[in-house]
Design a protein around this nucleic acid. Structure first.
Lengths: 252, 252
DNA sequence: AATAAACTTGCATTATATTTCAAAATCTTC
DNA sequence: GAAGATTTTGAAATATAATGCAAGTTTATT
């Protein structure tokens, strides 16, 4: 086994498991723990992972954009500023579709009473506006996806397809030059319905989403009007995105 | 168990329970209380929680993620016992429609994982089951009726009309010998759709609802299979109801 | 003020890291 | 293709950190 190959395997394995102990890795690549230690030190310097007592862990744990109960304090500040920036892009009395991710949720928080109508399949968003009687909130039907608080299934898609909104505020799991991807396949149908129903598409993507490819493809870059991200997003990819004609807003 | 993972689990558990004792946490993550103490100190420094004598508590009690709970505390005790009694009437693995009133909400609380499917247009009920992945919760679409957290409007009616359930657990504003009435006209359509979609109809009515007539008529007594009420309900009306062939359960 | 529960501190034990060194593998150079 | 230099590796020795336990101290409650 080649040193480089070994390190690649370690990196790859970590992508899957988020955390691995020294013994585990040592067995997996069939070298002593000493060597694994050395590899980890190198990989850490490279920024590929973080060493911890007893093993190594992914730097940016797949902060599941759509997991609410896993109480995402991850990139919370970034999400807040992104949310604020998105809210600023909304004109008064527009009809807004709000997607179910945590970043979109933060955008909802900053939206206040700006929007006249809000359409969402996210229970947290619905709850947020629940006691506000100056905004009309339309909740799609659907089955609750446990832990995520998202309404999914055919009913959700159907109820969205009959609607129309000025703007859609969307979340996703990853963005590359090939387009947007998302982790939960069940959400794709719904998100695509959202994209169809809205005139303007805004994607909220914190920097950890950049150059990351999730399980299922959602849409191409041409479907997007504006991307809102934070200051730490990689400049090269942003430049490329701008070249394709997508507007990119750096929040903060 | 990994230190970091352990701290994450503690954090996550606290999100659910708001407060946890040291023993509880120590058992849950399988380390000594000393270690839990140390973890809590770290997490507190991080701002994730607040230490108290005997355990730890959430800094910001669930703001508005799944927090749209019922706030009507009138006849709370009665509603609790009625809710418990209703839950006892449900057979395991039935499909249950749950109406949007506070009494029906309490029934949902006692339902646990008895029902296999729950259909509801109530956000509090949806939130209650939101993190429970052993019950499939189907939420009707609709517009949020402010403050009550009820989904109303044509979308709600439509999504209900296509469904079927074994039991419907209903609330209402009043009952007389002429039938059931309810105050919110918007709800009538939806409730009638619920009545149509369920095989067995259970009405939860605390004693204050008896001999009271609300704005809009909902249904006749013949549509009802079981009425669940509390011990203070007027005996005469109950006797009359029983005469018409309606089963009446006195909870408590 | 008394009491019990909960907290803090210090220490022994265990687990994990780092350092060091010799053997093995790889690369140079002739 | 072989002798020597260089790098990489594995294992032991040493250092550091994490954990659990028990002492004494503080805090809440009656």
């Amino acid at each position: 086994m080649q040193a480089e190959e070994r390190q690649f395997l370690i990196e790859q394995h970590l992508q899957k498991v988020e955390f691995a102990s020294l013994e585990e890795l040592s067995e997996r690549v069939d070298v002593s723990v000493s060597t694994v230690r050395r590899d980890l030190t190198l990989l850490e310097a490279k920024g590929a992972l973080r060493r911890t007592h007893g093993g190594a862990r992914l730097v940016s744990p797949k902060s599941d954009e759509f997991a609410f109960t896993a109480r995402d304090t991850h990139q919370l500040d970034e999400k807040e500023v992104i949310g604020e920036a998105v809210a600023a892009l909304i004109h008064p009395n527009q009809g807004v579709i709000i997607d179910a991710g945590t970043t979109a949720y933060h955008a909802a928080k900053y939206l206040g009473e700006k929007a006249s109508h809000v359409i969402t399949n996210s229970l947290p968003v619905a709850n947020h506006f629940g006691s506000d009687n100056s905004v009309e909130v339309l909740v799609t039907g659907g089955v609750i996806y446990p832990r995520l608080g998202v309404l999914v299934g055919p009913l959700a898609v159907e109820s969205l397809s009959g609607m129309h909104a000025d703007v859609a505020v969307m979340s996703a799991g990853g963005i590359t030059l090939d387009g947007i991807t998302n982790s939960h396949a069940l959400l794709i149908d719904i998100q695509q319905a959202m994209l169809k129903s809205a005139q303007q598409i805004i994607f909220c993507l914190d920097h950890t989403k950049f150059n990351r490819r999730s399980v299922s493809p959602l849409c191409g870059l041409d479907a997007i009007d504006i991307i809102v991200t934070d200051a730490q997003a990689p400049a090269e990819l942003i430049a490329e995105l701008k070249k394709t004609g997508t507007e990119v807003v750096i929040a903060g």
